[in-house]
Structure formats: C-alpha cells, structure tokens
C-alpha cells in the first residue's frame, strides 16, 4: 500500500527448517560398501560453501551420510556419535551396524512431532562380513538395501541405480544370470557417473565428491589403493579397512 500499510495484516512466521540441497548415495557389495555424497551446501540459489561434508565415519565399519537440512544433519550426527561413544564405554566394543541402524530409527522417531528434516543413509560392514546399506526417512522408517540414493537428485540417480545395480529391465544372456554383487571398480565407476550426471542436470549438486569405501577385514580392497586421490583412514590393523576418495565435480 502506498501509505506503508498492508491490505492484510502481516504475520511473519518463523520457519525452523530450510533445505541445503546436495545428494548422497550408498551401494553395498559382497564384502565392501561404498558411501558417497557431494560437498556443496546451498540455500535457495546461493552456494554457501563448496566444501561441507555430508558423509561421516561413525566406527571402524560404519559410515553415515546425512542430507536435507544441514543444521539438523550435523546435530543428528553429533548425537549419534555421542550415543556410540557411550556404548563403547559401556560395552568395550563398537556398536554393530544393524544396532546402529535401529538406534538411528529410535533417535529419529523420538523427534516424530518436530522431526529432524534429514534423510539418512547408513553404510558399512555387517557382523557376518557382508556389505550393508540402511536407508531412513526423516521420522525413522528404515530398511536394509543393496543400494540407495537420497537428496536433491534422488529422482535422477535412483532409476539409474535400479538399472545398473539391480539390472532392472535387463535380460541376462542365455543360460546366465545377473551377478548379485558387483566388483568394487564397477561400483566406483557407477557412483562417479551418477554424481557427474546429477551435477550436469541439478543445480544443487556439484563442487566436490567424497566417497567412503569400507572393506571387510581380511578381504582384498581390489586394487583400490592405486586409485587416484585415495586416502586410507583405517585406524587399527585388525579391523575392516576404510578409504576416502575425493574428486572434483563441476562448480557451475
């Protein structure tokens, strides 16, 4: 209104949530798991930073990727890590992966009426030595899967993964079946392709890619050590091995 007033009474409502973009993804192999996320953090059309990690090491064999509202995500990871430390002090061992998964569901559901606006993907090695991925919705509903994408580019990446990991809509050659698990090199190529594709077509994805690889204790990392920009982050000799691979993504 020209007189500085409003036609309707103005009520500004504080919104405690925002969306910080980005995408995460995890794929389980027979004896390894790959958990990845881009490193861009944005709000609206602004890039806040080109490097804000979304993938976190929880234990020697568990990695958690969080995506959605960054403040909730960071606080949630902080609280999960705290619970895991308490567990360590009480039981003198790390919490197993399936127990971490249930812990996360309980912690998310505890906030059912003021949820963490976060999509979680937990990846790592199960007690039987198999690779595992657990995916969650913001209020704790979860399941174990072989692969999952979440976040801004979920709709771009997930159908690609259906095709390349689960071989959906593909027929095996006569007398053959599709492999249930892919070798690590194939999985890494698919992960990198997924993120370059998502970067190409989604404005909230880009800048950097951080890939965690967990390999079952005593199993071969299948030539992973010789890959470009790889860093081993294993803390002890008698555990599963953990690696981080960092790659650049387009910054536009």
């Amino acid at each position: 209104m020209p007189d500085g007033s409003f036609a309707h009474p103005q009520q500004r409502q504080f919104n405690p949530y925002t969306d910080n973009g980005g995408t995460i993804l995890a794929i389980a192999g027979a004896d390894f798991t790959v958990i990845a996320g881009d490193t861009r953090q944005s709000e609206g059309y602004s890039i806040q930073t080109r490097y804000a990690p979304k993938v976190f090491r929880l234990t020697d064999r568990a990695v958690l990727a969080v995506n959605g509202f960054a403040a909730d995500g960071n606080m949630f990871v902080k609280k999960v890590k705290q619970r895991l430390e308490w567990y360590r002090h009480a039981h003198a061992k790390d919490m197993p992966l399936r127990a971490i998964a249930r812990l996360i569901q309980t912690m998310l559901y505890a906030q059912r009426f003021f949820p963490y606006y976060v999509y979680n993907i937990l990846g790592g090695i199960e007690e039987d030595g198999t690779g595992a991925v657990y995916s969650f919705d913001p209020v704790g509903s979860y399941e174990r899967e072989a692969c999952r994408a979440a976040g801004a580019a979920q709709s771009l990446v997930q159908p690609f993964l259906d095709n390349q990991i689960y071989f959906k809509n593909q027929k095996a050659a006569a007398g053959q079946t599709h492999p249930t698990h892919l070798p690590l090199s194939d999985v890494l190529s698919i992960v990198i392709d997924s993120f370059t594709s998502a970067t190409e077509r989604h404005i909230e994805v880009g800048d950097g890619l951080e890939i965690f690889v967990v390999v079952t204790k005593g199993h071969s990392p299948q030539g992973l050590e010789s890959i470009r920009n790889v860093q081993e982050v294993t803390t002890r000799a008698d555990t599963d091995r953990m690696f981080v691979i960092r790659r650049e993504l387009k910054k536009d």
């Binding site: 405690p16 806040q48 930073t49 960071n74």
Partner: peptide
C-alpha cells in the same frame, strides 16, 4: 558462519545479507 536456523559452514570467503549476492 552461523545463522538463526543453526546452519553452519566454513569457506575461504563468506558474506551475510546482501553481501552474499553482491560481494561473494
């Protein structure tokens, strides 16, 4: 950086308000 939502991040250069559009 920290804002009213509790959002945080680090970067070599940061600006708030209009600076995020004009100065960044």
């Amino acid at each position: 950086y920290i804002d009213l939502l509790g959002t945080t991040y680090s970067s070599p250069s940061i600006a708030t308000g209009y600076g995020a559009y004009i100065a960044i």
